[in-house]
Amino acid sequence: MASKDHANSSHATFDLFVQAKTCQEVKQHFSELCRQLQLDSKDFRGFYTKLKERLNYWKAKTLWTKLDKRASQEVYQQGTACAQNKCLVLGAGPCGLRTAIELSLLGAQVVLLEKREEFTRNNVLHLWPFTIYDLRELGAKKFYGKFCCGSLDHISK
């Protein structure tokens, strides 16, 4: 029974992480999820594999499927193409996040810095069709359910 309670709490924490509106909330829920799943967030090489093994939640599994499909492409060389590189990405907007994901898939050790405290913007960001497809394939709708809803190709708050 304790195992089921542990799973339920990590599932709830994952939901809170996905729904977080501020950087502080994201960091708080991420830290809590790592604590609950006994993960070391600084284990760049083994973190994703261990997270996948320990977070057995249907909402997370759909994200793992998308990421694994992408990572299996030949260009990533099974995460070894940039395994010796350490990269710093400035800005967690769509381009910064996309770059961080791409570098991670290539095997680089990535640090992402963001100065904003909230994930909202007053402007509307137009997206090209190939960008929409790319972000959908990486699970963008899991983190922002309103992603490109309707006939307009944009992200807004």
Rank of each mutant, 00 (worst) to 15 (best):
F119S: 00
G91E: 09
A71K: 03
F119M: 05
N123D: 14
F119I: 03
E118S: 11
P94N: 11
S41V: 11
T80A: 06
E32P: 03
E117L: 10
Q84R: 13
T120L: 14
Y48C: 00
K50F: 07
C95M: 13
Q38V: 07
R45V: 11
R121A: 12
G46K: 07
T99R: 03
L113R: 04
K69F: 09
F119E: 04
P94T: 14
S104D: 09
G96Y: 09
C34G: 02
Q73L: 14
Q38A: 11
E74M: 08
L63G: 05
I132W: 05
N123Q: 15
A71Y: 12
E53Q: 15
Q109H: 12
P94S: 11
T131R: 02
E118V: 12
K86D: 10
N123L: 15
I132M: 01
L106G: 05
F130R: 02
K115W: 09
K86A: 07
A71G: 09
F130C: 08
S31L: 14
P129S: 15
Y57K: 05
L67I: 15
D43E: 08
T131F: 00
K61H: 13
E102M: 13
S104M: 04
L37T: 01
C95W: 06
Q36C: 04
L103F: 06
C95H: 10
L39K: 01
K66R: 11
T99L: 08
L112M: 10
R54D: 10
E117T: 10
V111A: 06
R116I: 09
T99F: 01
G96N: 07
F119R: 00
S104T: 07
T120W: 15
K61R: 13
Q77A: 15
L127C: 04
Q78T: 04
T131G: 05
G79F: 09
S104I: 01
T65Q: 13
F44H: 14
V110F: 00
R98F: 14
G93S: 08
Q109A: 09
R121V: 14
G91W: 10
D68Q: 11
R54Y: 07
E102P: 04
K52Y: 07
D134E: 15
L55S: 00
S104N: 13
Y57V: 02
Q73V: 08
E102I: 04
F44T: 13
E114F: 03
L135M: 14
L105Y: 06
K115P: 03
T99E: 05
R54S: 09
E74I: 10
G79M: 12
W128K: 04
K52N: 11
L90R: 06
L97Y: 02
A108L: 08
E53L: 11
S72P: 04
L67W: 07
F130T: 08
S41T: 11
G96A: 07
Y48Q: 07
T49C: 09
K66W: 00
L67V: 13
L37W: 10
S104K: 01
T120S: 13
Y133D: 11
F47H: 05
Q38I: 09
L103M: 10
Q78R: 12
L112N: 00
A71R: 04
T49A: 15
R116A: 15
R54Q: 12
D68S: 04
V89Q: 01
V75N: 02
T131I: 07
L135S: 00
R121Y: 14
C82V: 06
K52P: 01
E117V: 06
E32Q: 15
E32M: 06
S72I: 02
E102V: 05
Q38M: 09
